[in-house]
Amino acid sequence: MSLPVPVYLNAIGTAVPGHDIHHAFIAWARERLIDSRSAKLFDRMAARSAIGHRWSILPPTGSGGSPVDPQGFYADAILPGTAARMAIYAEAAPMLGIAAIEALGDLGDITHFVVASCTGFVAPGIDQIVARRIGLSPSVERLLIGFMGCYAAVAALRTARHIVRSDPAARVLVLCVELSTLHLQDVAEIEPLLAMLQFGDGAAAALVTAEPGGFVLGAPFATTLPESEGLIRWDITDRGFAMHLSGEVPARIAAGLADPVFAQAATGGRDPAEIDGWAVHAGGRSILDAVEGALHLPAEALVASRGVLADNGNMSSATLMFVLARLLSGSPIADGVALAFGPGLAAEGFGFRSAV
């Protein structure tokens, strides 16, 4: 019986828009907190967020202002409806996705195209729009993974791995593209404002084949924290998608990882002390701190994740690919783990190692 063919994540390309909206959002959000105690807490949490920049596809105003300033997308007292937001998604998501794909360089003859996105809907889907614009053959097999949230990159890369293992001649293009800043909500409560504080726009593309180079993609794994389904969710409303990210999430993750059974499931059965490469979804500073503390990782273990968080914030499904891109350009990794948390509350990931 022949052994399964090794599958390689050969390259990753990334792209972000050019409009940094992080500090403009902080000023806008703080104005909504009338209670001085909440305002002080928000200031403290914003300062501790470890986020320096978040990028938006929404353009600056004519005078250079942000989307919440006069003439900006969110300037009116009643924020735009879901239809207006989806109209922008239909135009901007393919453009940003193509920028990430172009960063990959030569693709060769792509046979499969896997796209993950949870921040918009359009039909024909962005998989068809992008495939047509970049000149992929109409015979390319496409898959669109929607609404899985932050761990969707795992699902997309896992799917690519399954395809190549079943057809070693396959060349799979994977794309994660998220436009989180399309979903600003006019709220005055600190928890949803702190949730929105995390998110920015970004896209990442990857090439997965049986040709040696990059990272060897190992076995995937998945598990779910019990009684946690309400902690992370998206609600589709008439005013965009409302993100609910409970403040309990970091503590629940830490408690889960303190359980040897859950920790084994969330690391693919590996001993954290033996892992020399960590690609943890940069969902927020407190989440990275929870993982680091619960698994007793050295301070340098999550440098790549913290760097992505500082430079881009949380870009939902694209974030993990940004972290992998940093690791791919760094020192060789003998035994790595990619791990992401998302709605459920689920933890999904896979093992990886450098090809050389």
Rank of each mutant, 00 (worst) to 15 (best):
A204I: 01
P94E: 03
A279H: 05
G240Q: 10
E189C: 06
A255L: 09
D167A: 09
Y74M: 10
H281E: 01
A50V: 07
T319N: 06
V114Q: 09
A27F: 10
A152P: 07
R353C: 03
V7F: 03
E31Y: 13
G269V: 03
G256H: 04
V172D: 01
M321C: 08
R252N: 04
E274T: 15
G256Q: 05
F73L: 12
S56E: 11
G214K: 03
R32V: 00
R132A: 00
L184I: 12
Y151D: 00
S180P: 02
L136M: 06
R133C: 02
A206F: 04
G108T: 06
R44I: 01
S49W: 12
A50F: 14
T82N: 11
K40I: 07
L143I: 09
A203I: 06
V5E: 15
G202Y: 06
I134M: 04
M86D: 12
G62H: 15
S36N: 06
R85Q: 11
G213W: 15
P332A: 05
E227D: 15
W55H: 14
G135M: 00
D238M: 13
R132M: 02
S286A: 14
A24E: 13
Y89S: 08
S166G: 13
G256N: 05
L143C: 11
L207P: 03
G293N: 13
S305N: 06
D238C: 10
A24K: 08
I12D: 00
H183V: 04
L41T: 12
G230K: 14
L207E: 02
T237H: 09
P124C: 07
G269I: 00
G284K: 10
I253D: 00
A27C: 09
G284M: 07
A310M: 08
G64A: 13
I78A: 10
Q71M: 14
P70Y: 10
L79A: 14
I236K: 08
L179V: 06
I287Q: 01
F352M: 01
A204R: 04
R48P: 00
T111K: 06
R270E: 03
S63F: 13
L320R: 00
L136P: 02
R30S: 15
S246N: 07
M95S: 14
A255G: 13
N314H: 12
A39N: 02
A282F: 10
S56L: 11
A294P: 02
I34W: 14
I101D: 02
I333P: 02
A346R: 08
I98A: 01
G120L: 15
G256R: 04
A39L: 09
T209G: 04
A255K: 12
T209H: 05
G230M: 10
S139I: 10
I57Y: 13
Q198F: 11
L143V: 08
A83E: 12
D289Y: 07
T14V: 09
G149K: 09
Y151Q: 05
A92W: 11
F113C: 02
R142F: 06
P94F: 13
L104H: 07
H22A: 10
P226E: 11
Y151W: 14
G149M: 04
S316E: 11
V280S: 04
H162K: 07
A46D: 06
A87P: 03
H162M: 03
I275Y: 03
S66Q: 10
L328M: 13
E141N: 11
L309N: 08
G342P: 05
R165V: 01
V323F: 07
P298M: 15
G240L: 09
V187L: 13
E102V: 04
G351P: 05
